[in-house]
Simulated assay, not measured.
Amino acid sequence: MRNISDIIENHLKTILTNSHEGIVEIKRSELADTFHCVPSQINYVISTRFTIEKGYVVESKRGGGGYIRIQRVGLDRGNNALHRAILDIIGSSLTAREAEGFLQRLLEEKVLTEREVLMMRAVICSDIIALSPQLRDQVRASQLSAMLVAILKG
């Protein structure tokens, strides 16, 4: 059986898919009522499953009239700035979780093939990079950036 986080995530993704603008605007408390969970569960789903690495921009406004707006941001292959956008997202440091989310996004958007993603995962795996966590995240970001630039130029 799927857990509540998966159900909430799928619900939000369905709304996004059906939206002409690719945007969903929700009230956290209303969504929590719908799924009979606490509002912090909604926060958890949004903060872990709707990240920039996974292709989403999240904006929130607190207070009585507050909302959470989630927008899907695609990577347009025809855009000359694609590799610049990718490098900006990666930055100078990238955790294993962020890297996995980002690779999954590139696979889903067909920027990378499954084989390319498998090879990249093997290279940036935490088990392979035996360094302190901070240095490992910096090396991971550099390696992933270099591989992506090489593939996108080719």
Rank of each mutant, 00 (worst) to 15 (best):
R2T: 12
S5F: 11
I7A: 14
I8P: 12
I8E: 11
N10H: 13
I23V: 14
V24Q: 08
I26E: 04
R28I: 12
D33C: 06
D33F: 13
P39M: 09
Q41F: 05
Y44A: 05
T48S: 06
F50A: 06
T51Y: 00
T51R: 00
I52H: 01
I52V: 11
E53W: 07
E59K: 15
S60G: 04
K61I: 07
R62M: 06
I68M: 09
R69D: 08
I70W: 08
R72A: 04
V73S: 12
G74C: 02
R77P: 01
G78N: 08
H83F: 10
I89R: 06
I89K: 04
G91C: 06
S93P: 01
L94D: 04
R97L: 05
G101E: 01
L103Y: 09
Q104T: 15
Q104I: 10
E109K: 02
E109N: 02
K110L: 00
E114S: 09
R115C: 07
V117L: 08
A122N: 15
A122R: 15
A122M: 14
V123K: 13
I124L: 13
L131C: 04
P133L: 07
D137C: 01
S142P: 00
Q143K: 13
L144A: 05
L144R: 05
V149Q: 01
V149R: 00
A150L: 10
A150C: 08
I151M: 00
L152T: 03
K153E: 01
